[in-house]
Write a protein that binds this DNA or RNA. Structure first.
Length: 153
DNA sequence: GCCAACGTTGGC
DNA sequence: GCCAACGTTGGC
């Protein structure tokens, strides 16, 4: 069992959007970074859990917990000509980008990035590293436990 | 809106 | 394969 953190702009897909989706499940689409893609494709297993993180918004932070509910499959948005996520080099025969499905476990009170930064126990989190911009990253088991038990209790 | 940090592209 | 130029991310 691996733990993850996944960033989404709430203007695009928020934790409430996941809660409102059929079966509380949405495809995670639009990842266009190879490292993040490889985490989805090679690292994620059905049943893994992830922090759902709101980024690029007034109050960035952890907004809930989701579970990975599918293995990786081709991201449909890469084929949508004219769309924001279109990739002219991707074809159905040789897809370049993948999605996984995520299912809501629970929405939480927002745990702001500002707050995360104040905990010495979390100082090594990849999320908090200077210049870190990855949209999908692994979370250490100890960090996961600390955040879920002490901060999202 | 600014800008630091990082990733990608493409000429050579 | 180098690296400058450019584009993107994302907090502030």
């Amino acid at each position: 069992m691996q733990y993850w953190l996944m960033k989404s702009e709430p203007d695009e897909v928020s934790i409430d959007d996941v809660a409102a989706a059929p079966a509380r499940t949405v495809p995670w689409f639009g990842v266009r970074n190879y490292q993040a893609r490889n985490f989805m494709r090679d690292g994620m297993r059905v049943g893994d859990q992830a922090f759902f993180y709101h980024s690029s918004c007034a109050e960035p932070g952890i907004a809930g917990i989701v579970e990975i509910s599918s293995v990786a499959y081709p991201d449909a948005s890469q084929y949508e000509a004219g769309g924001k996520y279109f990739d002219p080099k991707a074809t159905p025969e040789t897809p370049r980008w993948v999605s996984v499905d995520v299912t809501l476990v629970r929405k939480t009170a927002l745990l702001p990035l500002r707050e995360l930064r104040t905990h010495a126990e979390l100082e090594h989190m990849k999320l908090l590293a200077k210049g870190s911009r990855l949209s999908i990253m692994p979370v250490e088991a100890g960090e996961w436990r600390y955040i879920t038990q002490q901060l999202l209790a």
